[in-house]
Design a protein around this nucleic acid. Structure first.
Lengths: 237, 237
DNA sequence: CGGTGTTTTCGCCTGTTGGTCGAAAACAGG
DNA sequence: CCTGTTTTCGACCAACAGGCGAAAACACCG
């Protein structure tokens, strides 16, 4: 008689910490893969779908209610991906704003996504997928809102994007692109300069805090159909 | 005692037929949802992952070995999505080139994705997801290869794209964009004109028949890093 | 064999967008 | 008040997609 197919959910929760893109992991206390680092998650419950399940498990096991965005990555289903039982996993990407510092249990820690410790099962692959998904979506959506504080300067946002993308980002270009796409807006206020002086930076925020695709460059779009002028000329205040 | 969580795979197989984007459905012969139209698929086997499973089920149940591309869409897991038992589904998008005409069983038929019959369970939602995924990826990948014959004229390709995208497409622009991205190449041959005459059309083919992301417009890319000049000036052989 | 109609191809122009650079603005500290 | 620092903003450039029309290459007909 075939072993019943179990289903679990796993979340790669990412956050920019200390200028680096990091992922939340916990250290397994028992076999299999005891001592190795795993993604938070758990069994799918009888009365929930996978989205509900992953949010429940996150809130329950590692106290992360500050996740600003959760999305499904995909299914991992190799028959031997977990020794012992057949277990199919639905993986998720979770994002936490950089100004949050959620309490996490003892056996839990943040690790840079590009410098993981010994990981359990196929979880390293899931982390890679999450990182790649984030990098891709930063380019054509407003997903930055889930990495940034509610309010920020362009310099701070530039650093966040550079850390997430893994390469330098021009502040000028970042501001212009995001503004033109209508996802960034100035609050009108300014931030106090640092100890070395300098012109006070304007404070910005994301206009929406829910995922939106913003890249109009969908090639081969219908003729003539320009999606309406969106960026009012940024009239300050 | 909780009902065990079963797992199934479902495929929305799409093809351009008669100038319309259609999906392969079969009519259920028993309850639940008897008489309604469902996607091909079935239970996940003990020794296969979901990708293997969906290919097996397609080949087995509806004789579609001509699918040029298969990719995972996502998980559908509402507790009540299928009456009776708890069943989690991994959905897939499958694509068949327009020149193929696979044999299909009696209870099976093609339907336009925008004019579905009464569908079973949540399968209509999966079809929508598949259609949307296809439309999105046609714009920034070479996915057209999976809809088109091995060789074709620009006019024929234009019709395929128009049918898939659901809006008119300019032949000039289509050719230029795909050529610049390096996914299209002329074979050097020409096709015979139609009964009304006209200049013989050049024959093209896709340079690769595997999925590749071709949109260099990843915003905020690393400074200076231009991805190499790829389009040789199209020196007609 | 030349004219007409048809289909395809190709070059040119235009508007938008992203990338880069440098000057100017606005501050702190001496 | 002068210098150093940080931010902001305008200007310029290259790449690219969309649109248009002329030219090319054929069939058919008289």
């Amino acid at each position: 008689m075939p072993a019943p197919t179990g289903h679990e959910v796993l979340a790669a929760v990412l956050q920019i910490r200390a200028g680096t893109l990091q992922v939340l992991l916990w250290q397994r206390g028992r076999e299999p893969d005891r001592g190795r680092w795993a993604l938070p998650g758990g069994r799918l419950g009888d009365t929930e779908d996978v989205e509900e399940s992953v949010r429940r498990q996150l809130a329950e096991k590692v106290d992360v209610r500050e996740v600003a965005h959760v999305e499904q990555l995909g299914v991992f289903s190799a028959p031997d991906r977990v020794p012992g039982a057949r277990l199919v996993a639905t993986s998720f990407l979770g994002l936490v704003p950089s100004d949050a510092d959620p309490e996490i249990p003892e056996d839990t820690a943040w690790y840079p996504v590009d410098d993981l410790p010994a990981t359990a099962f196929d979880h390293a692959e899931i982390v890679r997928d999450a990182r790649d998904r984030l990098r891709a979506k930063l380019s054509y959506t407003n997903l930055g809102f889930a990495l940034a504080p509610r309010e920020f300067t362009i310099s701070a946002l530039r650093e966040l994007y550079a850390a997430a993308l893994g390469h330098p980002v021009s502040a000028t270009n970042l501001q212009r692109v995001l503004t033109r796409r209508g996802v960034l807006a100035a609050t009108g206020e300014t931030a106090a300069p640092g100890p070395a002086g300098g012109r006070p930076a304007a404070v910005f925020r994301f206009t929406e805090r829910a995922l939106r695709v913003t890249d109009a460059s969908a090639v081969l779009r219908p003729p003539g159909v320009r999606e309406g002028e969106r960026a009012e000329p940024a009239v300050g205040g």
